[in-house]
Nucleic acid binder design. Structure first.
Lengths: 145, 145
DNA sequence: CTCGCCCATTCACATCAGTTGGTGAACTCG
DNA sequence: CGAGTTCACCAACTGATGTGAATGGGCGAG
């Protein structure tokens, strides 16, 4: 049983993020994976145990640096953990984007927002090129463009 | 001498906030005032000493709850302390609003943003009424409306 | 079935965030 | 001048945050 995690808490938000943003294969990130990935990206050290505690709600109140790292990893702005309204807005986007399972992919997507049409086109072309290079098939359905 | 506080750091941001958001009489808030005010508003306990450490840069990396409290007091979103772009945006507003020295006043102003014209008018009227009740003079210059 | 691996969970402990208590400088009021 | 207040600043301590190493269950391979 889920042990009653109150909505709007940090634990709930983290839990949600784990559920929604996943690696290429469909399963949730493991605590070790997240911890290591954060370290790899030049973030602060964060232990798998601590991640578990945060997700379970045994610890709330992490430090600024750890919040930054978590937000960075999951590809959401740090405000996600503070403002509930903001969190809801982002959640809407996340579920929309849930086709993009991969966290790095999501980061690219979020950062692309606001770029000029020309830049976007250039990047899009580049991705297609690489995709070809890696021998991946054409993206299935890309209705509107 | 300012002892070299690098731009973009938490210390710099805090310092800036202290400088810009002030009580009714023109002087900066004292550390004790801020600490007590935060406690009074139902926030977590925060010591004056700690505020000083943060402002000086001796401590960065405060916890989530303390960041919330600080943001709440100065009337800025918590994202102010994370995202530099966001911080700049808010700063622009702050300097614009620096006529509003009083923190509580600023909070009202920030929260009023986005309300319907009708509501804004109603509130504005209310403020005028109270102002009259308190025997304050008509606001000096309120050019554009 | 058993070995090996991965992963969540547990617990004892270390480190650093945050506090308490204090010093001295500046300023005020007798 | 001298007692009292207020403030920034300092240093030693406390406890919550965060870690590492050990436990145990689940699961696939041999």
């Amino acid at each position: 049983m889920p042990e009653e995690i109150a909505a709007g808490t940090l634990a709930a938000k983290l839990n949600h993020l784990f559920g929604v943003v996943r690696p290429a294969d469909g399963d949730e990130y493991t605590f070790d994976e997240v911890a290591e990935s954060i370290r790899a990206q030049g973030g602060p050290t964060i232990s798998a145990t601590y991640l578990w505690q945060l997700r379970k709600g045994l610890r709330d109140n992490p430090t600024k640096r750890h919040l930054e790292a978590l937000a960075g990893f999951f590809g959401v702005p740090p405000a996600y953990f503070f403002d509930d309204a903001e969190a809801e807005r982002i959640d809407a986007e996340l579920t929309l984007l849930s086709a993009l399972r991969d966290a790095p992919v999501r980061q690219i997507a979020l950062r692309a927002r606001g770029l000029s049409a020309k830049s976007l086109e250039a990047i899009s072309d580049m991705v297609d090129r690489v995709r070809e290079l890696e021998g991946l098939p054409e993206p299935a359905s890309d209705a509107d463009r």
